[in-house]
């Protein structure tokens, strides 16, 4: 087993693995340009009550006659009955999702994949570093930390976006800060009306004084951003064993059968998407991997 962390894929129900369960869109909230959060509930009450996921996992979201996409869960794992998916409209399926309205039906199978190691890092400081829509799979981490605040030390969120209007969940930041999460926002470009930081998100490490022995870094975003985040974390003597990344690959089946998401000797959908950096270091950043 390549990965060294957390839960394997959780078989949801006693049904064939590719079976998508009908679920209804119950709310849609615009988050940023071409990005919205969909709240979805299973139509079957039994499924609705028993579905559970862990921060970092994803569902396969299916639209009949169009296709299926893997989408990270972005809602509170402690909240049962409703699944939140923050979706950026970028391809055929997600553009079709953008035409859904409240009350429409989709197919859901999941949850799949590994989770962030939130129990393993009890007592640690946590540095969450993310950019763009990469905050979506990390928002459940923030909910979990807030729900279990005394289990963690200092918590930092370093969040980057292209421009100020591309930032997700900004209306929640005040509440997160009230729960002791230190937020450093930055954008790649802005006009003079922006009073926050300008610069790429790995540069936000320069504003922190971390204790490398007790800091865990959790990062998700464009792979090239992750490279730079790891570089900065290692430069601050944070051991590679304390760095976790969520990888994005072209996932199709979600259960490690089709091979589309192969990453080195592993399948991202099954042994990821969350990996301990130490486990993938040999082939992380290797060209064409």
């Amino acid at each position: 087993m390549l990965n060294t962390i957390t839960a394997p894929t959780t078989p949801l129900f006693d049904t064939p693995p590719m079976f998508a369960h009908p679920a209804r869109v119950t709310a849609i909230k615009d988050e940023a340009y071409a990005t919205a959060t969909y709240e979805i509930e299973f139509e079957d009450d039994d499924l609705k009550q028993h579905y559970a996921f862990r921060a970092g996992q994803f569902n396969m979201v299916y639209l009949p006659n169009i296709g299926e996409v893997p989408i990270s869960l972005s809602s509170d794992p402690a909240k049962t009955g409703v699944m939140g998916h923050t979706i950026r409209y970028a391809g055929n399926v997600t553009r079709a999702i953008s035409r859904l309205r409240v009350g429409d039906t989709v197919g859901i199978r999941g949850p799949y994949g590994t989770a962030w190691p939130l129990e393993r890092i009890h007592g640690n400081d946590v540095c969450i570093v993310t950019g763009g829509i990469g905050l979506a799979p990390l928002r459940p981490v923030i909910y979990h930390i807030i729900n279990n605040r005394s289990d963690y030390g200092r918590v930092y969120l370093l969040y980057g976006a292209r421009t100020p209007i591309d930032m997700l969940y900004t209306e929640q930041f005040e509440d997160w800060e009230a729960h002791g999460i230190e937020i450093h926002q930055t954008v790649d470009r802005a006009d003079e009306s922006w009073k926050g930081h300008v610069g790429v998100v790995p540069m936000m490490f320069y504003h922190l004084r971390l204790n490398p022995k007790k800091t865990t870094v959790l990062t998700c975003g464009p792979e090239i951003m992750i490279h730079f985040v790891i570089f900065e974390a290692l430069a601050r003597r944070i051991p590679k064993e304390q760095i976790y990344v969520s990888m994005e690959r072209n996932m199709k089946c979600g259960i490690g059968l089709c091979g589309h998401c192969q990453f080195g000797p592993t399948f991202v959908c099954k042994e990821g998407p969350v990996f301990a950096y130490a486990a993938i270091e040999p082939f992380f950043g290797v060209e064409d991997f």
């Binding site: 340009y33 071409a34 996409v69 970028a90 391809g91 055929n92 399926v93 997600t94 950019g131 763009g132 980057g160 976006a161 292209r162 591309d166 790649d188 610069g199 790429v200 790995p202 540069m203 320069y206 975003g221 464009p222 090239i224 951003m225 730079f228 570089f231």
Partner: peptide, 21 residues
């Protein structure tokens, strides 16, 4: 060196809207 690194990343415009799914 840090600012050069950051400028390279900034030039890549990594959060630009993608046409990929």
């Amino acid at each position: 060196a840090g600012r050069l690194k950051a400028t390279r990343l900034q030039l890549l415009d990594i959060f630009a809207p993608s046409e990929m799914s």
